[in-house]
């Protein structure tokens, strides 16, 4: 491999990749995660509060979204919402897809709250909405946060799938550079290392957080 590695190419592609990483990949991850975290919470609460038949349908819809590929969903939205730019579509696809996973995390967090908390809220006549907002969600969030973080990392590593709808994220830049300069080694290696450099420390952080937040 030593013979093929060209430091000049490496130096040439690195700034391009870093720029795409910051302006696209990170933005996609952050916005996507925020959407997923908000929607996931909505699903988790809805699954508990909606009447059984409706919540069953919702659970099924979430299953379908969770069990079908992200690129296919990206294509679908791309053709349905032709008027939207691809970044917006990417936000929606990442957000909705991962909201189904985060909903599961929230569910586990909500289930871990002791029954006495709900009962105390009833005994104080707190309305449902206030019980969720002031009592249940803050406690569930604490139990759920590391898991949400892990799904955000998973989303981060899935962003290159959005190549299919033409989002110019980091791996797209790598492929373009590789194609134009007839060398892929540097571009894809550096892209991989950037992913690793960002995701590994975050994953370690989440593991620590998990230990620290455990009651």
């Amino acid at each position: 491999m030593g013979i093929n590695w060209d430091w000049q190419d490496a130096a040439g592609v690195f700034p391009l990749l870093l720029e795409a990483f910051v302006t696209k990949t990170l933005v996609l991850t952050v916005v996507g995660s925020l959407i997923a975290a908000a929607l996931g919470l909505v699903w988790a609460v809805a699954l508990r509060e909606l009447p059984t038949p409706v919540s069953k349908v919702l659970a099924w819809v979430l299953d379908v979204i969770r069990m079908t590929p992200l690129p296919l969903q990206a294509f679908f939205l791309y053709y349905v919402f032709v008027q939207l730019d691809v970044m917006t579509i990417a936000f929606i696809v990442l957000g909705v897809h991962y909201s189904t996973y985060m909903a599961e995390s929230y569910r586990a967090g909500i289930e871990s709250i002791r029954k006495g908390q709900w009962e105390a809220a009833t005994a104080l006549s707190l309305p449902k909405s206030r019980t969720w907002r002031a009592v249940i969600v803050p406690q569930a969030l604490r139990a759920t946060l590391p898991s949400l973080g892990n799904w955000a990392i998973a989303m981060f590593k899935d962003t290159p799938f959005l190549i299919v709808i033409g989002v110019a994220e980091m791996v797209t830049s790598a492929r373009e550079y590789g194609g134009e300069n007839f060398t892929y080694v540097e571009a894809f290696t550096i892209a991989g290392l950037i992913f690793l450099a960002a995701s590994y420390p975050t994953a370690v952080l989440m593991r620590r957080l998990e230990k620290r937040l455990a009651y």
């Binding site: 002791r114 006495g116 105390a120 002031a134 009592v135 803050p138």
Partner: peptide, 8 residues
């Protein structure tokens, strides 16, 4: 079991 809210 008291059931105080631990987040408050």
């Amino acid at each position: 079991q008291f059931n105080l809210f631990p987040n408050m």
